[in-house]
Nucleic acid binder design. Structure first.
Length: 393
DNA sequence: CTAGTACCTGA
DNA sequence: CAGGTACTA
C-alpha cells in the first residue's frame, strides 16, 4: 500500500522551489483556517489535495519541497454516486495528473502566489501600524492562498455558526461523499473537491444532512444549483475578472452566502486582496487592539459594522489589507498561542484593558455613506445576472 | 438601518 | 456558545 512520502527517507524523489520561510510558513498558512484540506501527516509534512493532485509539502529555511503522488486509486475512482449528465463537461476540467515538474512547480507558485513579495508587504504594514509590527516578527510567512473558487465557496458556506475543527471534518466528509477519489496513502483516502454538478444533485441535501451538515446542507445544494441554472459552470471563475464589490454582491445572491462568506471567497479565491472578512473574532481584534468603537455601540455585527471595520483596515493597511488581516487573525488563534513569546504578555495586558473598558479612543473614519439599497435575497436572485467574461485558458 | 430569532450539531 | 445567514418586526 502506498505511504505518505517523507523527505528524510527519499529526498531525491522530491522537487523543490526556492522560497524562504519568511515568505511562506506552511504550518501557519495551511492551518489558519483559510483552507480545510491540508493535514500535517508527519512532522513538518503537509499533505492535501490541490488542482486535482495529491501533494505532500515540507520546507527548509530557503526551500519549499514537494512530492506529487501519481498512483491512482485504480478503476473505481468515481464519486460514490453520479446520476448527472452534466458531469462529463466538468471532467474535462480535472486534468489527469500526468507528472510534469514544470507544470507542478507553476501550480505551486500560483497556489501560494509566490510572485507577491510578502516580506515587503510586512515592512509596509509594520511601518503603518505598530501593533502589526509587534506581531510580525513571530508570525512571519502567513500568506494568502489562491484557492479554487468552487472549493473555497462551498467550504466557507460550511463555516457559519461553526468552528474550525468541525468544519474540517465536514469538508472532509463532503469530499469523501461527492468527490472523485484520487488515491489512498496509509489509511487515508484522498478525494478531489466535488464538482458543481455533483453538489447540485437533488439528493445532496438529504445526504449531507445525514453527514451532520445541519441546515447548511440545503445551502450547499441550492447554491450549486443556482449557479448552474442561472449563470453556468464558469461563472465563479469569471468573478476573478471583475471588481471586488461586484464579485462580492454577486456571491451574496447565493443562499447561505452573506457578507462574511462572500468576503472570504473574494479574498481567498477571487484575487481581491483588499477584501477584509469581518467576523465576531475580527471585530474583537478591532476593538481590543485598535480601540475601534462603532459610533453607537452596536450590539451586533451589522452591515454597517462590517463596512466600517473593512474600511478602517483598508485605510490602515492599503490594497493588501485582506492579507494583513489574515496575519492578525492567525496570531490570535488559540492553537498558535504557543508561538508567542514576550508579546503574549503585552497581549494579556491588553486583555485587562479591555475588561476595564475605561478609555475608549474614538477613531475617525470618513464614511462615504452611500450604499445601494438591498432587496430581499429572493428578489435579488434574477438580477445577479451580471455578464462576466470567462477567463481565457 | 437595527435588533431579535431560528437554524443543525457537537464541545 | 461556536469564525453566520435569512427572515421578521
Amino acid at each position: 500500500m502506498a505511504r505518505h512520502a517523507v523527505f528524510s527517507s527519499g529526498a531525491k524523489l522530491w522537487r523543490s522551489l526556492a522560497c524562504a520561510k519568511s515568505e511562506l510558513r506552511l504550518d501557519l498558512t495551511l492551518a489558519c483556517g483559510q483552507t480545510f484540506r491540508w493535514r500535517e501527516t508527519s512532522e513538518g509534512h503537509w499533505t492535501g489535495v490541490m488542482g486535482g493532485r495529491v501533494w505532500t509539502l515540507t520546507q527548509t529555511e530557503d526551500t519549499l519541497w514537494y512530492y506529487v503522488y501519481t498512483n491512482h486509486a485504480g478503476g473505481k475512482n468515481k464519486p460514490e454516486k453520479t446520476d448527472s449528465l452534466r458531469i462529463d463537461e466538468e471532467e474535462a476540467q480535472s486534468v489527469p495528473p500526468t507528472p510534469d515538474p514544470k507544470v507542478e512547480a507553476e501550480m505551486l507558485r500560483d497556489y501560494f502566489q509566490l510572485h507577491v513579495k510578502l516580506g515587503d508587504l510586512y515592512r509596509e504594514w509594520g511601518a503603518a501600524d505598530c501593533h502589526f509590527k509587534e506581531i510580525a516578527d513571530i508570525f512571519t510567512g502567513v500568506r494568502m492562498l489562491r484557492q479554487d473558487p468552487t472549493e473555497c465557496l462551498f467550504s466557507f458556506i460550511c463555516t457559519s455558526n461553526n468552528h474550525i475543527s468541525r468544519i474540517q471534518g465536514m469538508v472532509e466528509r463532503l469530499c469523501q461523499a461527492l468527490g472523485t477519489r484520487l488515491c489512498q496513502l496509509d489509511q487515508t483516502s484522498y478525494h478531489d473537491f466535488p464538482t458543481l454538478s455533483s453538489l447540485a444533485d437533488s439528493d445532496v441535501e438529504e445526504r449531507l444532512r445525514d453527514l451532520g451538515f445541519g441546515y447548511r446542507a440545503r445551502f450547499l445544494q441550492q447554491s450549486a444549483k443556482q449557479i448552474l441554472d442561472t449563470h453556468g459552470l464558469r461563472w465563479l471563475d469569471g468573478l476573478r475578472n471583475v471588481l471586488y464589490l461586484e464579485a462580492r454582491d454577486a456571491l451574496r445572491t447565493l443562499p447561505g452566502v452573506g457578507t462574511k462568506v462572500a468576503d472570504c471567497v473574494c479574498l481567498m479565491a477571487l484575487d481581491k486582496s483588499e477584501a477584509v472578512p469581518v467576523d465576531t473574532h475580527v471585530w474583537q481584534i478591532a476593538k481590543r487592539d485598535y480601540k475601534f468603537t462603532a459610533d453607537n455601540r452596536q450590539k451586533t455585527l451589522t452591515e454597517k459594522v462590517h463596512r466600517d471595520i473593512g474600511d478602517f483596515f483598508r485605510k490602515l493597511w492599503g490594497p493588501y489589507a485582506g492579507w494583513a488581516h489574515s496575519v492578525l487573525f492567525c496570531s490570535d488563534l488559540k492553537k498558535f498561542q504557543n508561538l508567542r513569546g514576550d508579546t503574549s504578555l503585552t497581549q494579556s495586558k491588553k486583555e485587562e484593558e479591555r475588561e476595564g473598558e475605561s478609555k475608549k479612543v474614538k477613531i475617525k473614519r470618513e464614511l462615504d455613506g452611500h450604499e445601494k439599497k438591498r432587496k430581499p435575497k429572493a428578489e435579488r436572485r434574477k438580477k445577479a445576472k451580471i455578464s462576466v467574461k470567462t477567463e481565457e485558458v
